[in-house]
């Protein structure tokens, strides 16, 4: 007679635990569904149709995808951001790494001031940044123009066709060095003190400690920062979009894949094709990010 009661007594906390687990999980899951899964599913759904100003909406099958894959404007944009990725990301991460190591070395006089200053650009609103860089890059009345006048030389127009990608890279580096530095610095702080003590006892200097203890410990954080930067490069939008008003013939509507998708959707009312372009861009980004991860992981094994 007592057995069922006991069983119930045992089962109840277990059940309660499971319900509690789901209850904690549910709010996140709902938000995730509404803000991530639903828009993504909707974009994929949209990409299979074609809406026309005359004639309404028709089912397009894979038509938008075959068009996107053969689209020269989209392809040129992808090549451009890939080039950007290869050149800008290593430079930015190297600077971020040096800054993080400098703060962690304990040899700076005002480490927190240094940290805040490097991080500051990340917090500057994009509009302010746009006005600032627009002024600095100006070759007539801007900073570049003024320096050129002072030195009596003609400096190159940083917003011309050949310089533009580098100028954007410079802006992006300025903006995100601090952000990446914080990721790397946090990883450095997680290294246990004992390791340093042991290394010092073995007679290792600061450089040796950085090379043999700090860098290996930073590898997971560097991977995260690299992945963020890879994704960010493919998503490049804000900076070129800001500079477009200043250099409309250099930054075309398809300068980066994201700008292309944006202009298709909002200036061209081609929501469906834009969705297909965005999905293809997403897939390319996933593949590249995955390849970067595999390469890094393999290198880690061999080390």
């Amino acid at each position: 007679m007592t057995a069922p009661a006991t069983r119930a007594g045992l089962a109840r906390p277990f059940l309660r635990l499971r319900v509690a687990g789901y209850a904690f999980f549910l709010p996140f899951f709902l938000v995730f569904l509404i803000t991530v899964v639903a828009p993504l599913a909707y974009a994929i759904y949209l990409s299979f149709f074609q809406e026309r100003m005359i004639g309404g909406t028709v089912f397009a099958g894979l038509g938008n995808y075959t068009r996107a894959i053969g689209d020269a404007l989209f392809g040129a944009g992808l090549v451009r951001v890939a080039l950007f990725l290869v050149a800008q990301v290593p430079i930015m991460l190297l600077i971020a790494l040096l800054c993080a190591l400098a703060i962690d070395s304990g040899r700076l006089r005002w480490p927190s001031l240094f940290r805040i200053t490097i991080f500051m650009p990340y917090a500057v609103p994009a509009v302010v940044a746009a006005l600032m860089w627009g002024y600095m890059y100006g070759d007539q009345f801007g900073l570049v123009g003024q320096i050129g006048d002072a030195l009596g030389v003609t400096l190159p127009d940083l917003m011309s066709r050949s310089w533009m990608l580098g100028s954007i890279g410079n802006m992006v580096t300025w903006e995100y060095v601090g952000y990446n530095m914080i990721i790397l610095y946090a990883a450095l702080r997680a290294i246990p003190e004992e390791l340093y003590e042991a290394a010092e006892m073995d007679g290792a200097g600061a450089v040796r400690i950085a090379w043999s203890i700090k860098l290996p410990a930073l590898r997971p954080a560097l991977l995260v920062a690299t992945l963020f930067s890879v994704i960010g490069s493919f998503q490049l939008f804000n900076e070129p979009n800001i500079l477009q008003k200043l250099a409309p013939s250099v930054i075309t509507t398809s300068y980066t894949p994201n700008m292309y998708a944006y202009n298709l959707a909002f200036n061209g009312q081609q929501i469906n094709y834009s969705a297909a372009v965005a999905v293809v861009l997403g897939l390319v980004t996933v593949v590249v990010a995955y390849v970067v991860q595999i390469i890094t992981a393999r290198r880690e094994k061999t080390l």
Binding site: A126, V127, A130, L131, F228, I231, G232, E239, N241, I242
Partner: peptide, 19 residues
């Protein structure tokens, strides 16, 4: 780059107004 998509619209409008 690396901004939430929602900031995009606000920003473009702001830049248009500012510039």
């Amino acid at each position: 780059m690396r901004n939430l998509p929602s900031r995009r619209g606000v920003m473009t409008a702001g830049v248009a107004a500012a510039l």
